[in-house]
Simulated assay, not measured.
Amino acid sequence: MQRAAIALMLLTGASAVAAEPDPALEAARAKISEMFEMIEPEDVGRSPIDGWYTIQKGSVVAYVSADARFLLQGDLIDLDSQVNLTEMSRNDARRDLMATLTDADSIVFSPAEARHEVTIFTDIDCTYCRRMHSQIDQYLEQGIAVRYLLYPRSGPNSRSWSTSEDVWCANNRNDALTAAKLDREFATQQCDASMISKHYSLGREVGLSGTPAIVLEDGTLIGGYLPPAQLGARLNQAVAHP
């Protein structure tokens, strides 16, 4: 709790300073946005280190020197507080990205009384995604609502992508997802399946390196499979010790 508070003060302080006129910052913004097409000027801001600025696009974070000559990619850790400031920024970005979704934008499996909610990027075909879904009832027993986003790792124009679209267009997406992960046939129809592209883009913004990928409510990213009891224990601990 104390470490998080210290980190929050550091980041808040950096934001407050960023509001003051800073010709060097404006120059760095102009140079970086000119060099990198995907970077907007507002993606560049103050960092906790004097003489360096933060570049953040979604959950991707990097640092650039004030003269915009040096670019550094890696984690910034406050050794006094033992807080990974970069990961905190990533968590905030992931939390905000997940907040843009509604239940209608995902495939939700929910217990009668949900104590926690996680967002899981899943691939129809990946082994551990299938293992995880085979235990969906056990996750629900832990009081965990699971919000699935479809992330075909093989990308557009692949069989997994096509199957994901079929799942999305099914009358009962929950049953269709379960059937797809068991290689069983299911009824589907033509529909607007552009949501798969949105899920895929979100996965890239979140910084996925594989599936399954679990995003907790605070934006923490867990890469890989986590058994129901372990995930439940981690979520309970997060509530008890925020």
Rank of each mutant, 00 (worst) to 15 (best):
Q2I: 15
D218W: 12
A233G: 11
A187S: 10
T119W: 14
A99P: 03
E20K: 08
Q190A: 09
Q189M: 14
E34R: 14
G224N: 06
S33V: 09
D166A: 03
I124L: 02
W168I: 02
A27I: 05
R131M: 10
S197V: 01
D125Y: 06
Q230G: 10
E113D: 11
D67P: 01
L8W: 13
Q142H: 03
V44I: 14
E20R: 08
K31H: 08
D192S: 07
A170E: 00
A30Y: 08
L216V: 02
H199A: 05
S160F: 13
C126W: 07
M38L: 13
R234M: 09
A62K: 04
S201I: 07
Q73G: 14
S65C: 15
L208T: 06
R234S: 01
A233Q: 04
Q189I: 07
R184M: 08
P23C: 02
T102V: 15
L216I: 03
Q190I: 07
I6Y: 05
D166V: 02
W168H: 05
N172R: 12
E40T: 02
I55P: 01
T188L: 04
P111R: 01
S59N: 08
E185G: 14
D123N: 11
E42F: 02
A68H: 02
A16M: 09
A62W: 00
A180G: 06
